[in-house]
Amino acid sequence: NSASGPLPDGWEQAMTQDGEIYYINHKNKTTSWLDPRLDPRFAMNQR
């Protein structure tokens, strides 16, 4: 992992069949290639 600590509440790390890691936001029912622990847009929304 490139980030430390647990994923934010509602997020899950998953892997594609090709072995690529992505992240699932169960609250918004969206997915992201960016780790939410590193995404400044997500961090701003949590303050």
Rank of each mutant, 00 (worst) to 15 (best):
W33S: 03
K27G: 11
A3H: 08
N45Q: 07
E12D: 05
G5T: 10
A14C: 10
I24E: 03
R41C: 15
W11C: 03
Q46F: 09
Q46S: 11
K27N: 10
G5L: 09
S4Q: 11
R37M: 03
Y23F: 13
I21Q: 09
Q17R: 10
R37E: 02
A43C: 11
S4P: 04
T16W: 02
T31Y: 01
I24D: 00
W11N: 01
E20C: 04
P36L: 02
P8M: 07
L38E: 13
S32R: 01
A3C: 11
E20I: 03
Y23P: 00
D39W: 15
P6M: 10
S32I: 01
N45S: 08
Q13C: 07
F42A: 11
I24M: 08
A43N: 14
W11Y: 06
P6L: 11
P6R: 14
I21Y: 08
N1A: 02
M15S: 14
T30Q: 15
L7E: 04
N1R: 05
Y22P: 00
Q17T: 14
K27S: 10
R37N: 03
S4N: 09
K29N: 14
S2Y: 07
Q13L: 08
R41W: 15
D18P: 03
H26Q: 11
G10P: 05
I21G: 05
A3I: 15
L34F: 13
L7M: 14
Q46A: 08
P40E: 14
N28D: 12
W11A: 01
A14G: 10
D35V: 03
N45C: 09
D35F: 02
M44L: 10
K27C: 12
A43Y: 06
L38A: 14
T16K: 02
T31V: 01
S32E: 02
S2A: 07
F42S: 13
P40L: 15
Y22N: 01
P36V: 02
Q46Y: 10
N45V: 09
R47V: 07
A14L: 07
I21V: 13
I21K: 11
A3P: 07
N45G: 08
P6T: 09
E12S: 08
P6I: 08
T31M: 01
M15E: 10
Q17M: 11
W11T: 02
T16E: 02
L7V: 07
T16N: 11
D35R: 09
I21T: 13
M15D: 03
W33G: 02
A14K: 10
L7W: 04
F42Q: 14
N25E: 01
E12Q: 09
T16H: 02
D9H: 08
H26S: 08
G19C: 03
L7D: 05
M15N: 12
M15P: 04
D39L: 15
W33L: 03
I21L: 08
T30H: 02
A43T: 13
G10D: 11
A3N: 15
L38D: 14
H26C: 05
A3L: 09
D18L: 08
D35E: 04
Q46N: 14
Q17L: 09
A14E: 08
M44T: 13
G10K: 05
S4W: 06
D39T: 12
K27D: 07
N1Q: 00
N45I: 09
N25Q: 03
W11G: 01
T30M: 15
A14Q: 10
Q46D: 15
M15I: 08
P40A: 13
Q17D: 14
F42K: 07
N45W: 09
R41T: 15
R41I: 15
K29P: 02
G5I: 11
A14I: 04
D9E: 10
K29T: 05
Y23V: 01
N25C: 10
S2W: 02
T30P: 00
S2D: 13
A14W: 03
F42E: 13
Q17F: 07
R37F: 03
W33C: 02
L7R: 03
L34Y: 13
T30R: 02
P36I: 01
K29V: 03
S32K: 01
N1M: 08
G10R: 05
S2K: 15
G10W: 05
M44I: 12
Q17A: 13
R41P: 15
E20P: 00
A3S: 12
S32M: 04
A14M: 12
N45E: 08
N1I: 04
M44Y: 09
Q17Y: 07
L34M: 07
K27A: 11
A43H: 10
I21F: 06
G10N: 11
A43G: 11
A3E: 11
L34Q: 06
L38I: 13
T30L: 15
T16S: 10
G5Y: 07
L7H: 05
W33R: 04
P40S: 14
R37I: 01
D35T: 03
A3T: 14
N1T: 10
F42Y: 10
Y22E: 02
W11S: 01
K29C: 12
S32C: 05
S2C: 14
L34N: 08
R47F: 09
E20Q: 05
